[in-house]
Computed example of a mutant assay.
Amino acid sequence: MSFKVESEIHCCGGKLLKLSHDSSKTGTSMNVNVYLPQQFYHKQSDKIPVIYYLSGLSCTPQNVSEKAFWQLQADRFGFAMVFPDTSPRGEDVPGDPANGWDFGLGAGFYVNATQQPYAKNYQMFSYIHDELPTVLDQFFKNPSLDFLDNIAITGHSMGGFGAIAGFLKHYSSKKYKSCSAFAPIVNPSKVPWGEKAFGGYLGSDAAAWEQYDPASLIQKVQNNGTDRILIHQGTSDPFYRDQLKPELLLESVKGTSWEGKIDLELVEGFDHSYFFVSSFVPQHAQFHAKNLGLI
């Protein structure tokens, strides 16, 4: 399955590639940005690991590529970055019937929809975790890029939820070496954004919701003893108290193997924007670089 290179941009010491491809999972064309660090072009590393970054509600691959400054950290430690889109898009792709911004186009919630009319296109869980890494590996066909094995995952807001859920659902196979999140929705079954999305994509069955809810998933996953999840949350985030509620994840792990393994850092005065995200990307980059064997 071939990618089309829409543009190739020199950035920091490497290049940002803006790509598109036809997805078999979503049935649409999907955009994805990939940053290849300076080590790739200077042949300084035999094997370059990859971090997948999942963006939040209403975002495209451009927001994080232009505002988070991951490229500087990628050059520093020697990892590549993959920035997928947040949902399928196109004239025939159903959106929010209420014309909202928190469901439908730009708000795929990284789940596999089971409800109509969304099930045809909104297969974002399978797209992110199965199809995209595979087709990237097939497209680049470069032994110095590791899209499949030495990988980590992170994300912001809706994407933070998607990162944690994907990490936990693949934990037994050790697909991801590490996971972090910026202001994630940690218990979507109990907040308005999640209730709307899960209801629309998954229906009314609470058991279907639990299959994606980090607060439920983490209680069923046995920590190997060393893994930790890093989370940053701004105290001035307007969504902190009613939509994100990171403390609910801490409550859910009490008495489990994950108790004491969730590093929640509340940072005074920070909001929900990319000013917040970019401020703590260096800490998250170092966290993943260590787990990816780069430090």
Rank of each mutant, 00 (worst) to 15 (best):
I185Q: 14
S157R: 01
A183M: 11
G166C: 03
A163F: 01
A183I: 07
K220M: 11
T154Y: 06
I153L: 09
G203K: 13
K177E: 12
T154C: 11
V221F: 05
A197H: 03
H156T: 06
P184W: 06
S173F: 01
A215M: 03
G194K: 05
K196F: 11
S172A: 15
P192C: 09
Y176F: 15
N223R: 05
D227I: 01
A215Q: 00
Q222I: 14
V186T: 15
L148G: 02
K196R: 13
A207H: 11
V221H: 07
H170L: 07
V191Y: 04
N150S: 11
N224V: 02
E195W: 01
D149R: 07
S180V: 09
F161P: 00
A215H: 00
S173C: 10
K169Q: 14
K175F: 06
P192H: 10
S173T: 12
F161Q: 08
N223C: 10
C179E: 08
K196N: 12
D227S: 13
F161M: 08
V191W: 03
A165I: 02
D213S: 10
F147T: 07
E195R: 14
E210K: 15
P188C: 05
G155Y: 03
Q211S: 15
L148M: 15
N223H: 07
G199D: 05
A207G: 04
K175W: 10
A183N: 08
S157G: 09
A152M: 00
P188S: 11
N224H: 13
F182N: 06
K220A: 12
K177N: 07
K174N: 15
Y212N: 12
K177F: 10
A152P: 04
V191C: 08
V221K: 08
G166T: 05
Y176M: 05
E210P: 01
S173M: 05
F198G: 03
S178G: 09
K220C: 03
H156K: 10
W193M: 14
E195A: 08
S180E: 06
Y212F: 15
W193T: 13
D205G: 08
G203C: 09
I218L: 04
V191A: 12
A215R: 03
A197P: 02
Y201V: 12
K174M: 06
N150R: 10
V186F: 07
I218W: 05
L148E: 12
S180W: 09
G194E: 09
K190Q: 15
N224W: 06
A163V: 00
S157V: 04
I153C: 00
N187E: 14
A152N: 05
G199K: 05
Q211D: 14
D205W: 07
I151W: 01
V221L: 07
H170N: 15
G162D: 04
A206V: 15
G159H: 02
K175A: 11
S173Y: 01
N187R: 12
N223A: 08
Q222C: 11
K174P: 00
D227G: 01
K169N: 14
N223I: 04
Q219E: 13
A181N: 13
